[in-house]
Amino acid sequence: MKTPGFWYRPQATPAAWLLAPAGALYDVASRLRRAWVSPQRAPVPVVCVGNLVAGGAGKTPVALALGRRFREIAVEAHFLSRGHGGSLAGPVRVDPDRHSAAEVGDEPLLLARAGPAWISRDRPAGARAAAAAGARLILMDDGFQNPSLAKDLSLLVVDGGSGFGNGLILPAGPLREKPADGLKRADALVVMGADRAGIADLAARHGLPALGARLVPVAEDAARLRGRKVLAFAGIGRPGKFFATLAELGAELAGAIPFPDHHAYTPDEVMRLVETAQERQAVPVTTEKDLVRLPPEARPMVEALRVELAWDNPAAVDAVLEPVVRRVGLV
């Protein structure tokens, strides 16, 4: 679904207040689930990259950055995801050459290009399968609210500009749970972009480290698109951020078309986008995450802007990871 605009307005709108009772029920159900389920311990340490809002915070780039760091220090980390939007229940090891986004979801395909990645709706079963295949550490992309698998380290990703939106629970707002509840189970916060929402101060009040990070376009892609007229489209949590990134790197926007998060593009949709781009003498451009959801035959007609995560203070990240890295050597 598309992110409702009222989720990120400073004050709750009439629509938000009408949906607030449903949000209260969602919150109660989530609390009961966490209270009733006994987390299972994986054979190896588990690091969870989660968030408190529905979509758009940047979990997957953070997971990819952590995966790179673990490889640099020779820790065999495997990614684990539910496989949102995919048809396979798992546990399945993702093969980018064999699996499609319709089978395993878009994010696992990106993760699998960077390292061993698994999807499993049953998270403990997925962790056991990864460990049996040689993983010394499980790196979960999402799953912070899933109580079935015990976490050794939990990082919450928060957008520094939008924070927690209107502060209401789904569907009245973007929150999956109340921040006060989630912060009790977190070990650190990752603040994406400029901290205009006071996230670092909130982390300090809860005794948690705040790790600054930002998404930067891959230099090669930025140079290729700078000064060119582009027709941008994206089906991510907050497509406006992608459109703004293109404008900031110097591309000329001939159009910006949002789609629902995890949208499965049809061949006809892609052809209409390509034809519109041609009419406007522009290049169709999307995100790397969207590209894997395009029909394979349509991908050569569309360009993607890749982004990567840069830490403000890599040493602070290493300090947060140190306890779990030490435990890897003992497993």
Rank of each mutant, 00 (worst) to 15 (best):
P217F: 00
V218G: 02
V218W: 01
V218T: 03
A219V: 14
E220S: 15
E220K: 06
D221C: 05
D221E: 10
A222Q: 07
A223Q: 13
A223L: 13
R226W: 06
K229G: 12
A234M: 05
A234F: 01
A234L: 04
G235S: 01
I236F: 00
R238A: 11
R238T: 09
P239A: 08
P239D: 12
G240A: 07
K241E: 08
F243G: 10
F243L: 09
A244K: 03
A244S: 10
A244E: 11
A247S: 12
E248S: 12
G250I: 08
A254L: 04
A254I: 11
A254P: 03
G255V: 04
G255K: 00
A256H: 00
I257R: 08
D261E: 09
A264C: 11
A264I: 11
P267H: 09
P267S: 14
V270W: 02
L273N: 08
V274I: 15
T276H: 08
T276R: 14
A277F: 07
A277Y: 04
A277K: 02
V285D: 09
V285C: 11
V285A: 09
K289G: 11
D290Q: 07
D290S: 15
D290F: 06
D290I: 13
L294G: 02
P295V: 02
R299G: 02
M301P: 03
M301D: 11
